[in-house]
Computed example of a mutant assay.
Amino acid sequence: MEGIQPLFDRKMECIYCQHKSSVKNIRSRFIKVSSYDTDFCPQYSAESENALLYNIHVCPNCGFSYSADFSPYFPPSTRESIEDKICANWVPHDFGGERTIYEAIKTYKLASYCAVLKKEKHITIAGIYLRLAWLFRLSEDSAQEIRFMKLARQEYMNSYSTDDFKGTQVSEVKLLYLAGELSRRISDLPSAVRYFSMVIERQKQTTEPKIVEMAKERWQEIREDKKSQSAELIGS
């Protein structure tokens, strides 16, 4: 591996304006995940190996920002909206080089705005918000982390109610687990218990037993916390 750098240039063509540019990506052999948080946030061995930083492509020509999860289809009137609200106000900026966490946060915020204007699926928007929460967790900004966890949870709930997650890499069980775990992390425990229970109810139908086990663990943690709090109140 001597002489091979973790980052390499990848050619991209903007799905909005077809402008060609190059962006940095991390070679898969350099990506080393040491662990995952309970909401699937990956913990990388080094910040320089953080693949999250490079998920979003920002077109330097028009400003349209998107991930690989975006559909190439633009619903009626969305192009006009993007032109008016994104492109017309775009100050040329190149995010194609090496990124810091703070630069990556800017790209995700741009992508979330573009996704809303483009009327992307709720499941796609949820994924962007969730990753924003992860980046704010890494930067130790708990207020913004909670803000984007709330936004992500709402989009996951919208996705579940509209079934727009079907046909994507996010299964029903994983979606419900994430809705539950995000509810737990923002201290909405009744909703967390409800979503975890929905995951557990599907344990005989799912092909993802690990997620069911995780739901059981989170549910048990909530139960134990409630017992501890009750004991403290009685003791006081």
Rank of each mutant, 00 (worst) to 15 (best):
P42M: 11
P42L: 05
Y44P: 03
A46R: 12
E47S: 14
N50L: 06
L52T: 08
L52E: 12
L53Y: 11
Y54P: 10
Y54D: 11
N55S: 10
V58Q: 04
P60L: 09
P60Q: 04
P60W: 08
G63M: 02
F64S: 04
S65K: 02
A68K: 05
D69R: 10
D69F: 03
D69N: 10
F70K: 04
S71V: 09
P72L: 04
P76T: 06
S77M: 13
S77A: 13
T78H: 03
E80F: 11
S81A: 11
I82L: 15
E83L: 08
E83G: 04
I86V: 14
C87M: 15
A88N: 15
N89R: 13
N89E: 11
W90S: 13
W90I: 12
W90E: 12
V91N: 14
P92E: 13
P92M: 06
G96E: 07
E98W: 09
E98L: 10
R99Y: 06
I101N: 07
Y102S: 15
Y102W: 07
I105S: 03
T107N: 01
Y113I: 11
C114T: 00
A115Y: 00
L117M: 02
E120L: 12
K121Y: 03
H122T: 08
I123E: 01
T124F: 02
T124Q: 01
I125H: 00
I125Q: 00
A126E: 00
I128G: 00
I128A: 00
Y129Q: 02
Y129E: 03
R131Q: 07
L132R: 05
W134K: 00
L135E: 01
L138Y: 09
S139N: 15
D141Y: 10
S142D: 15
Q144W: 14
Q144S: 15
E145L: 12
E145R: 07
E145T: 07
E145H: 08
I146L: 10
R147E: 12
F148K: 02
F148Q: 00
K150Y: 10
Q154V: 11
Q154L: 13
Q154M: 12
Y156D: 06
Y156S: 12
Y156W: 13
N158T: 05
S159Y: 11
D163L: 09
D163I: 10
D164F: 11
Q169P: 08
E172I: 08
E172L: 12
L175V: 08
L176E: 14
